[in-house]
Simulated scan of single mutants.
Amino acid sequence: MADTGHRPEDLPPSLVPAALEEDVEDLKAQVRSLTAQLASLQEAFSSPAAVLPQQRETDDDRAWRYPPFILLLDTPDRDAELRVLAEWVEGVLVPGYLGEPSADARWCHRWVEHEDAVAHLHALWLAWQELTDPASCGYTGPSTWHRDHYRPCMNELRGPRGPFAGCTKGEHHIAHRLPGRVPSDWHLEP
């Protein structure tokens, strides 16, 4: 059917079916309603601090959207986060990415005892969660994770000056070199 440029309300009533008139009136009412809603929203957002009630973040929303960094967690939450991190490290990272440890690429199977290694691995895991989800980062996320997160993290952890530098491999025996406690006013012996 060709568009004649005529609007239904411009045509004689005998040419416009009654149902079409009702549809036109319904559409007009919807436009009026949407116009009123738009004006209401513009008024609500005219103040920079204004937030609609349904858009306020709850504590649950923040917890889901912003995972906590493991070093900032208290003991029960930290232990739970460490368990989940360990599942990823031992189930994905170690078997899928790490080769045999060597003098140039060390690894400690007791990595949870190295606080700085835990911090690095947790940050790597958080990045992995985000960058392996195509919904949040598209299909280039894994490449970005490898380039920007995995390689620098592994170079730091497994390098000659990394947290595993004092660990040796020998018949599954790991010897840890832990720094001694430096006397200071921050730590007083009981």
Rank of each mutant, 00 (worst) to 15 (best):
A36T: 13
P190W: 03
T168V: 12
G91V: 04
Y66R: 10
H120T: 01
V118Q: 04
P68C: 09
H173F: 07
H122F: 06
E156M: 04
T132I: 00
A29S: 06
P17Q: 08
A2Y: 09
T140S: 08
P101G: 00
H120C: 09
P142F: 01
E57L: 14
L34H: 09
C153M: 05
V16N: 04
E43Q: 10
K169P: 05
H114G: 03
D23S: 11
A123Q: 07
F45Y: 14
C137D: 00
A63N: 11
D185F: 11
W88S: 00
A63S: 15
F45N: 09
T75P: 09
P160V: 02
E90M: 04
V51G: 05
P53K: 08
R177M: 08
T4R: 05
V84E: 10
L15G: 05
P179I: 06
L52I: 10
D104L: 06
P13H: 02
E90G: 09
P101I: 05
D23K: 10
Q55T: 10
G170R: 13
V182Q: 09
Q37H: 11
E25T: 12
A39R: 11
S184Q: 03
D60L: 05
E130M: 03
R177N: 13
R151F: 12
P13K: 06
K28Y: 03
A119K: 06
